[in-house]
Every structure is written in C-alpha cells, then in structure tokens.
Amino acid sequence: MEVLLNVYQQQRKWMNAILGIAIVTVFWMFANWQVDSELFFVGPWRVVTYTYGLFASGEILDDLRISGIEFFWGYGVAAVAGIGFGMVFGISRIFREFFDPWLSAIYATPSVALAPLIIIWFGVDLTAKIVIVLITAVVPIVLNTYTGVLSVGKEFQTLANSFCVPQRQVLYKILIPGSLPYIVTGLRLGISRGIVGVVVGEYFGAYAGLGYQLFKGLDTFNMPLMMSCAAMLAGTGVVFNQVILVIERRMAPWRDTQLQE
C-alpha cells in the first residue's frame, strides 16, 4: 500500500490524468449502456475499433492529409503573420491608434460568419479552407503578442537605452523574449481556433477532410464515424498543444512556473 502511495506521489500528474480519463470512460460506458442505440450514441470501445478500422482500410488517410494541409498552411501563416502584426501593434503607437478598432471588430466577429463569404470568394478548394483557418487562428495570436509587447516593462527599455543598445536590437533582445509567454498563449489558443476553422471550412463544401467525414456521418446516420472524427480532432488539439508547451520549455528555460501548472 505504502509503495503504491509513493508511486502515486511521484507520478502524481500522470496518475491523475489517467484517473480522470478512467472516470470519464466509465461514465461514457454507463451512458452507452443506458442509450443502447448506435444511431444516437456509441461507447468508447466502439470508437476505438471504428477508428482503427478507418486507418486499417486506409479510407481516412486522404481526409487526414487534406485536413492536415489546410491546418498547417493556415496555422503556419497565421503564426508568422500573427506574431509579426502583434509586434507592430505593440511597438507602433500610430499603427495601434489606426487599426485597434479593426482588430477589436475582427475579434468580435465569429469566424463562422465569415466562412461563407470566403467560400464564395475563393471557391470550394483548399485555398478557401486555408484562408478560413488563417483568419480564425490569427486573431488570438495577434492579440496575445500585442498584449505581450505592451506588458514588457518600460524599465527594460530604459535599461537598454542606458547601455546604448540600438533600437533595432531592442526588438530581439528585449521585446521578443519579454513577450514570449504571451506569444505562446496566443499560439495555443490559435491551435484550437484553427481546428474549429478546419471543421467550419469543410462544412461549407468540401470533398474530403475530417470535418467533411464528420458531416457525412451526420447525413448518413453514421454515429461511429462522427464520434471517431470528433475524437481525432480533439486528440490533434491536445497533441499540438503539448508540442508547443515542449517547445516553450526548450526555448524559455528561465520560466520555471510553467513546469507545474
């Protein structure tokens, strides 16, 4: 017993995560036993086997590839442009004064509302989806980078000024490292918004993709397919989030706080 407790103390974080998964799975199984109709609900085991089947037959691979391309291009451009614009917003007061209202407007607009317009402008092929992912993911990245730059204490600029550090070096010696925690938050929020963008984009017309399969499941009363797609989308979000956290830990060893969240 004591040994078990010790192991629990040491691996606490993992153990608790696993316990959490177990608790939800039990509820899920119970709910499934209660509903007992594959039209409405399927159990966890069925989702696993169904997903395995999708991979084994290879029929989902093309959808994964398409959604992956949409996400990576859209999110990639969003990350670069978002950090870039966020920096400009944070640094330039003029720029801020001119475009802050626009940023707020874009922030307040649900991206779903823009998706139909973009489909009309860009057609139903990949470009439209990439653009939708881009505009959904870019907003939190811009906003967080922007807030991050403003959060860097004035005193650090005074410090740089005091040691005669040229203005352009202030960008990478002070502003970027100082706002890194905010940039990471923006990138993490951008991931979940980008995944929403993929699904929304594929809803308005597509020939393949995880979102497309999800809605096909809806049309064909295929509950296992829908839940399997939803699970894959959720899993992707979790994995990408972890990837960003690991990168941050590598890049920012001075931040000890995020190790125990």
Binding site: E155, G178, W254
Partner: peptide, 21 residues
C-alpha cells in the same frame, strides 16, 4: 542629451533580464 557608452548606471532596482543567465 542621452546615454553614452562612457557612462554606466547601477540601478536602484536590479533590473536584470529574466531570460538571461
């Protein structure tokens, strides 16, 4: 009319950059 490299300040608050060792 501005800092020059022939002067240096030891600040009242340490003002170390948290991201530098």
């Amino acid at each position: 009319n501005g800092p020059t490299p022939n002067k240096a300040v030891v600040f009242q608050q340490a003002l170390l950059l948290p991201w530098r060792n």
